[in-house]
Design a protein around this nucleic acid. Sequence first.
DNA 1: TCTCAACATGTCTGTTCTTACATGTCATGG
DNA 2: CCATGACATGTAAGAACAGACATGTTGAGA
Lengths: 183, 183
Amino acid sequence: MSLRHGLLGLLAEGPASGYDLARRFSEALGSVWPAQHPQIYSELARLESAGLIEVESTGPRRRKAYRITEEGLAEVRRWLAEVEVDHTFRMETLFRAYFFWLMEPEDLKAHLAKEQVFFAETAAALRGYAATKDRGDWGTSAQTRAMRIAIEAGIRINEALAGWAEWAQESDIMTSEDFGTAK
Amino acid sequence: MSLRHGLLGLLAEGPASGYDLARRFSEALGSVWPAQHPQIYSELARLESAGLIEVESTGPRRRKAYRITEEGLAEVRRWLAEVEVDHTFRMETLFRAYFFWLMEPEDLKAHLAKEQVFFAETAAALRGYAATKDRGDWGTSAQTRAMRIAIEAGIRINEALAGWAEWAQESDIMTSEDFGTAK
DNA sequence: TCTCAACATGTCTGTTCTTACATGTCATGG
DNA sequence: CCATGACATGTAAGAACAGACATGTTGAGA
């Protein structure tokens, strides 16, 4: 359901092809809402038959660019303003934490160290990306600024998780003897 | 795929029925990996036919409690130790941020304020929950301590997002005139 | 005695999402 | 001229997931 509106939101910036949109999802966008090309193409077909988007042009290599319609723009606006945010999220990293007690202490320590590095590196990469936006490399359009806000959230979450992984390694909560001993 | 291992992990703590497991998912666990009862019951049936769990007892009200088998315990351990963590996650809150530029500035401000309250309250609730664990209300078993670690992650993420929502409201990034003006 | 809430387990349908398969175009460089 | 890689769009099968429907049990309190 969110993918539908996400595609409309991206097309609100200007016409794009399925391929373009899939590329956007494989970048920053995909880290908060993964989507593969088959889903994107089929969703675009559905949006077109619903009249929310229309074919703008057909280019070389049978490229088909879509443009958002008035109704589509109204629909994405309605979504943003009226539809309640779904706060549920799925995060395997945290889910696994509930089962840490089943792991051998050394494995767990190694696991957390690896996670810490991953989150710290991801945060650093996003910080670098944000810096280019702040320097104005991408202009100062409203879209760029919205993206900057989204990236800031990514930075903060990854930093929080890096801090968590570090805290967990040092915490005396997991340094006891009965970790790794099922039942 | 994670649900399968999550159920095994929960059953590693001791026998439980589908109803028990569904309740656990409706609590803290569901905030990092949502699962409804139909999915849980069908997954349990699949785990049973795979020999990873077995029926331990049948009680009143046709209650059926499952117990993890040796193979099941080995499988959840293998998952924790060997299977790469999938770091992708889905978070509508952040996804929407990419489209903030389509919102009316006043709507956006109100939206962010609401989000800030939501995350701050969630963090506070989790902090309260963590405090009861720290007081020892739930014993000091390895399971309880693992859960404490998981909750800590929830606290930090929600605090990070509350801070983000506050930052975004005050940021000059979104106080410009062209927000809400598509194209 | 009756009603309600909590206990308890399932099926069914439709949607979403993933993965693998399949095809064809065009530009570049060897 | 040929191979390769990036461009580009799709289908098909199946897994995962959500929501509605369906049923029956037991205990507590009005």
